[in-house]
Write a protein that binds this DNA or RNA. Structure first.
Lengths: 219, 219
DNA sequence: GTCTATATCCAGATAGAC
DNA sequence: GTCTATCTGGATATAGAC
């Protein structure tokens, strides 16, 4: 028996269900954030459910009210991470800029993010952990295999277009893209795993590696 | 009671001790090789002693006649890997070549090694596993902290010297060294974790990123 | 040196009270 | 929703026979 409130047309039952759902999602978010911290630093197998629970401040068993298993948390994190990364790269491809400006914008943005966002760097570490382990459950491996090459492919397209225009350095686009992501990824991981006093390259150094000299002016 | 053989002055007792020792070392080598395979792909915690033993073809318990613990095998592998890498870099620094030629030689050599040596790539994966995990026993972490920055420092010196001579591109030497190793490491890992059909950059692409144009000619 | 068998421990997951 | 207590499986490391 649902009772419609006269004020907003939403039953109090529905209201509290909504609120419960919201609180549940918030709690899941807390767990995911803690799990990202732990997994990114220790990997799937060295991280114990207890570690995550302690970080959130809940009992070990309670995690299982929100997730079916440890692998499930890991899978959800990795899937989200790869999806967001891929969406961002696809957005970059669609920007109304010439190819070499896309590359410059990406480098500046990525370096800034590495400099300021601990979470981003943790995410890179997580992807690194996931992508370089053959010990993961099959369903996670599938997700990774499907999604991890998107950034390489998308950037290779941009590089190839830039080479057509003569603004991007010569070389196999796929190989250049590989060096690009490998560097970005490595910098994020480097930053995440050293306490402090890390000198990241400034954008100009990286831009010079991919964009031809005459197109390097500030703008 | 040791009996000296007249022929070679070595007692038969000593002879067989020597041979036993040699066989023991060979067996240890077999275990280390298998462990490198497994650890580099799965990390310390996801790798089970049983995996290593099966790969060598011995009983699980027998591993413990050669190593005190799983961590011990891992520590020995990581220590060796870092030492060899560091020795090679220090050798590079001592070569009687101008700085930019050292860089060119290193890039060519490293790319060739990545292309041809599965073991080298596994070693890079192992170092990656080790260097990016906070979950390791304290003694391994110490080893890593002491040794892992040597290549960055040594290469930064070479880069700085090359900049003095005007043959190496501009930018903070430390940051350039970071990009250099991050790329090399990333390529090795990329190669190791994909089955095949990997297009590595050719040496020219990487050389162009670090050595100024006019010093890039083949030689 | 090598094996099989086992003691021991630890962590993932569940059950059940509140 | 949250906790404590517990079941259960699996892996390290050891013991002991051959």
């Amino acid at each position: 028996m649902k009772v419609q409130s006269k004020k907003d047309g939403v039953s109090s039952v529905a209201r509290s269900q909504e609120q419960n759902e919201k609180m549940r999602l918030e709690r899941k978010e807390q767990i995911m954030a803690a799990a990202l911290r732990e997994f990114s630093a220790k990997g799937l197998y060295a991280t114990k459910i207890k570690d995550i629970a302690e970080y959130v401040g809940m009992a070990q068993g309670l995690i299982y009210h929100y997730f079916k298993s440890k692998e499930d948390i890991f899978t959800e994190l990795v899937t989200d991470a790869l999806d967001k990364m891929n969406d961002a790269v696809i957005e970059l491809g669609k920007m109304p800029l010439p190819p070499h400006e896309k590359i410059k914008a990406a480098i500046k943005q990525l370096l800034y993010t590495i400099e300021t966002s601990e979470r981003f760097n943790q995410t890179c570490c997580l992807i690194n952990q996931a992508a370089n382990s053959t010990a993961l459950p099959a369903n996670i491996k599938e997700v990774i295999d499907q999604k991890r090459d998107v950034p390489y492919r998308e950037l290779a397209k941009i590089i190839a277009a830039g080479q057509q225009e003569g603004t991007v350095v010569a070389g196999d686009p796929q190989a250049l893209a590989l060096v690009f992501w490998t560097s970005i990824n490595g910098l994020a991981i480097y930053k995440a795993t050293r306490q402090n006093n890390v000198t990241l390259p400034d954008a100009g150094i990286l831009i010079n590696m991919f964009v031809k000299e005459q197109n390097n002016g500030k703008n």
